[in-house]
Design a protein around this nucleic acid. Structure first.
Length: 110
DNA sequence: TTTTTGACGATTC
DNA sequence: AGAATCGCCAAAA
């Protein structure tokens, strides 16, 4: 299970600190699949099936848009969770996304 | 096995 | 600036 590409994504997503966000493409890129951003998104589809819960709400697209909010329990869950962590969400997009952006390659490279 | 699709990203119109 | 299209890759039907 831990050898699957999905789990690789889950592990990275779990490393995202509260109050920060990242993008699918960067996760994929960090895993060696810069063109497989969609795969990361697909992996998130199975996120709730992962044993340790995956904070998928901290993962947004490159524009900081909460594109996957509709896949949560309710379309509001994602935004509410982000706000609960101190992240402002306006019009389904993360405010100061660039500032809150958490790049695994930058934060975990050491 | 083939076809369709998808929580993306970048490009083009 | 906003919308539509193409490209990538893997899982699901």
């Amino acid at each position: 299970m831990q050898d699957d590409f999905f789990d690789q994504v889950y592990q990275v997503v779990r490393l995202i600190p509260p109050g920060r966000v990242t993008s699918y493409g960067c996760i994929g890129k960090y895993l060696g699949a810069p063109r497989s951003a969609r795969m990361v998104g697909w992996a998130m589809h199975a996120a709730p099936t992962a044993d340790p819960p995956v904070p998928a709400h901290r993962v947004v697209n490159s524009l900081g848009l909460l594109t996957g909010k509709m896949h949560f329990e309710t379309p509001f869950t994602m935004q509410e969770r982000l706000e609960a962590e101190g992240i402002e969400v306006k019009k389904d997009k993360v405010v100061q996304f660039k500032k809150l952006f958490w790049d695994p390659e930058t934060e975990l490279k050491l």
